[in-house]
């Protein structure tokens, strides 16, 4: 095994081009577990920890360009206004120690369906900026997940940053686990209201082979909200609309039965979270105030 320690981004890309099977190492919170338990023995480890630009972010007019290795703890502290859904999700990641090391880039690299960041990215709208010595490209996050723990990266590519749309309306994130900390999601749900485009987007985690959006549910809800003039009038979402939305979110799931939860429970829990988070965010929208957390104070 060889340990590669590029100090600059171009060196990292060159190293990845030279060693396409090299495993990128960011916070180490996934890769090191695999090394410690003898599940992975790559020829090369590619440490990205020394490349400054991966640890910073830039806030533009529409998006935040979040460096791949910005730890969750920074997102919680510094970006809850711009990225409220992601900040809520970040607070449920592992433990304080893990949040000090783990990053959205790492979550995307691992592409586990249970990664906590994914639903929030899907709901907010995001593109993954990936690069190689050949150049760089932006991949819509929906297209980034290609299978269980598989993503759209080519062998020579690394994740540079994630471009996440800044919140223009309330967002929420919920995650079911059987413990109150250090728990992998049994399933998770994110919702983001986008008042400017009059759309609602969703993200579901841990309830299908990849993180997914509940597109039929979004379409139904967007149509129902438009039809009822909800965006203008500030009318409440009726229980029947919320109920149908929740059903369609559950229908978007294709969960497995495993030690963490049953198929039926995951579907059920996604529907409950969909209904509740829609309620919180829509109420927050009607009140016109906070864009975070659907009215809940989390600290």
């Amino acid at each position: 095994m060889e340990f590669l320690r590029p100090a600059r981004w171009d060196e990292a890309l060159a190293a990845k081009a030279a060693h396409p099977t090299a495993v990128p190492l960011a916070g180490g919170t996934d890769v090191m577990v695999e090394l410690n338990f003898d599940r992975r023995r790559p020829d090369h480890l590619l440490d990205l920890g020394r490349i400054p630009e991966l640890h910073t972010w830039e806030t533009g007019p529409e998006t935040v360009r979040l460096g791949a290795c910005v730890p969750y703890a920074r997102i919680i502290e510094r970006l809850p206004g711009e990225l409220p859904g992601l900040a809520l999700a970040a607070r449920t990641v592992g433990s304080p120690q893990i949040r000090n090391r783990g990053s959205v880039g790492g979550n995307l690299g691992a592409a586990s369906p249970a990664g906590d960041a994914h639903p929030a990215l899907l709901a907010a709208g995001a593109e993954v900026e990936v690069a190689s010595v050949r150049g760089s490209r932006l991949i819509p996050v929906e297209e980034f997940y290609t299978g269980v723990k598989r993503n759209a990266l080519a062998d020579d590519e690394l994740i540079r940053a994630i471009h996440i749309r800044k919140a223009t309306g309330p967002q929420a994130f919920s995650k079911v686990g059987t413990r109150n900390a250090m728990v992998i999601a049994v399933c998770a749900f994110a919702i983001a209201l986008h008042p400017r485009t009059r759309t609602v987007r969703t993200g579901i985690g841990s309830a299908a082979p990849t993180p997914v959006r509940a597109r039929a549910a979004e379409d139904f809800l967007n149509a129902a909200l438009a039809e009822g003039g909800h965006w203008d009038g500030g009318r409440a979402v009726t229980p029947s609309i919320a109920g149908r939305f929740a059903e369609l979110c559950a229908a978007a799931c294709d969960p497995i039965d495993d030690v963490r939860g049953s198929t039926a429970y995951r579907r059920h829990a996604v529907s409950v979270m969909a209904r509740r988070t829609l309620g919180w965010t829509w109420e927050a929208f009607r009140e016109g105030g906070a864009i975070t957390g659907g009215g809940a104070q989390c600290a």
């Binding site: 919170t29 890769v31 090191m32 577990v33 440490d47 893990i98």
Partner: peptide
């Protein structure tokens, strides 16, 4: 941080 999840080289 958890020292078990930091590679020595890091």
């Amino acid at each position: 941080v958890c020292a078990c999840l930091v590679a020595a080289g890091q």
